[in-house]
Amino acid sequence: KVILLEDVKGLGKKGDVVEVKDGYARNFLIPQGLAVEATKGNLKEL
């Protein structure tokens, strides 16, 4: 699961917690600054 930092077409809006494949999160969303891993600490910051 990841928390979206920006609106991502076809996935969700900023602040949404979405389930995506590990590779998509690690190789695209997180490096592009579009999402962060949905850890307990990150979820509390919402």
Rank of each mutant, 00 (worst) to 15 (best):
T39M: 06
L46T: 14
G15V: 00
L4I: 02
V18F: 04
N42Q: 07
D22R: 14
L46K: 14
L46A: 14
L46H: 15
L5V: 08
Y24N: 03
A38P: 06
G41H: 14
N27H: 11
F28M: 05
T39S: 09
T39Y: 07
V20M: 03
G33S: 05
V20R: 01
D16A: 10
E37I: 13
V8P: 00
K1S: 11
G15M: 05
E45R: 09
K13Y: 12
K1V: 10
E37Q: 10
A35S: 02
V8N: 01
G15A: 03
R26N: 07
I30V: 08
V36Q: 08
E45L: 06
K40N: 12
E6T: 15
L4K: 00
P31I: 14
K1H: 10
E6Q: 12
V36N: 04
G41A: 13
D22C: 13
G15W: 13
T39P: 09
I3P: 00
L5D: 00
G12Q: 01
D7W: 10
E45A: 06
D7A: 10
N27D: 06
E37A: 10
K40C: 13
K9G: 10
A25D: 04
N42D: 10
V36G: 03
V2P: 00
E37T: 07
L5Q: 06
F28C: 04
I30H: 02
G23F: 14
V8G: 00
G41P: 09
K9L: 12
N42R: 08
F28R: 04
V20A: 03
E6F: 15
A38K: 05
K40Q: 15
A35K: 00
G23E: 14
A35G: 06
E19F: 14
F28V: 05
G12A: 02
Y24K: 03
D16Y: 08
V20L: 04
E19Y: 14
G23W: 15
Q32M: 11
D16I: 04
G12Y: 01
V8Y: 05
Q32H: 10
E37V: 11
V18L: 10
V2Q: 01
T39V: 06
V2I: 11
A38L: 06
P31L: 13
E6I: 13
G41Y: 03
A25C: 05
G10N: 12
Q32E: 09
G41D: 15
K1M: 09
D22W: 15
V36Y: 08
D22N: 12
E37C: 13
D22H: 12
G41F: 04
V36E: 07
R26Q: 08
V18D: 00
A38D: 08
K44Y: 05
D22L: 11
E45D: 15
N27E: 09
L11Q: 02
I30L: 08
E45F: 05
K21R: 14
K13G: 07
Q32Y: 14
G10E: 07
K40L: 15
K14W: 03
D22A: 14
L43S: 04
L11P: 00
K9Q: 11
T39F: 05
G15T: 02
K40Y: 15
V17W: 06
V36I: 12
V17A: 05
G33W: 03
T39R: 05
L11D: 00
F28I: 06
R26S: 08
Q32I: 06
L34I: 10
I3W: 07
A38F: 12
Y24F: 10
L5S: 04
Q32T: 10
N42A: 09
L4Q: 00
N27F: 15
E6S: 14
D22T: 14
L5C: 07
E6H: 13
E45P: 04
G10T: 07
I30Y: 11
N27W: 15
K9F: 12
A35L: 01
A25W: 08
L29H: 01
A25P: 02
L11A: 02
L11Y: 11
L11E: 01
G10D: 08
N27C: 14
G23H: 12
V20N: 02
L29Q: 01
V2N: 01
D7N: 11
V20I: 08
V8L: 08
T39I: 07
G23V: 13
E45Q: 10
E45G: 11
E37H: 10
G15F: 11
V17T: 08
G10R: 06
E45Y: 05
D22K: 11
L29K: 01
K21L: 13
R26D: 05
I3V: 10
L5K: 08
I3T: 05
D22G: 10
V20G: 02
D16T: 13
L43I: 09
E45T: 04
L43F: 06
A38C: 11
I3Y: 12
I3F: 10
G15R: 04
V18W: 03
L43G: 07
L46N: 14
L5G: 01
K14L: 05
N42C: 07
K44H: 15
V18N: 01
E45I: 06
V8M: 09
V18K: 05
D22V: 14
V20S: 03
K13R: 13
L34F: 10
V2R: 00
K21D: 11
G10L: 07
E45V: 04
I30N: 02
K14H: 04
G12L: 00
K1D: 05
L34K: 10
E45C: 10
D16N: 07
K1N: 08
L29W: 02
K1Y: 11
L4T: 00
I3R: 08
K13F: 12
G12R: 01
A35D: 01
E19V: 12
G10S: 08
P31M: 15
G41W: 03
V8F: 09
G15L: 05
R26E: 05
G15I: 00
L43N: 09
K1T: 09
G23K: 11
G10V: 03
G10H: 09
G10Y: 12
L43H: 06
K13V: 08
G12V: 00
G23I: 12
D22M: 11
L43V: 05
K1R: 14
G41K: 14
E19G: 07
E19T: 11
Y24C: 05
G33Y: 05
L34V: 08
V36D: 04
N42L: 07
A35E: 01
L4H: 00
N42E: 08
E37L: 14
Q32K: 12
K13L: 12
V20E: 02
A38S: 09
G12P: 00
Y24G: 02
G33E: 05
G33R: 10
L46R: 13
L34M: 10
K9D: 09
G10A: 07
E19A: 09
Q32D: 06
G15D: 05
P31E: 13
L4F: 02
F28H: 06
K14T: 07
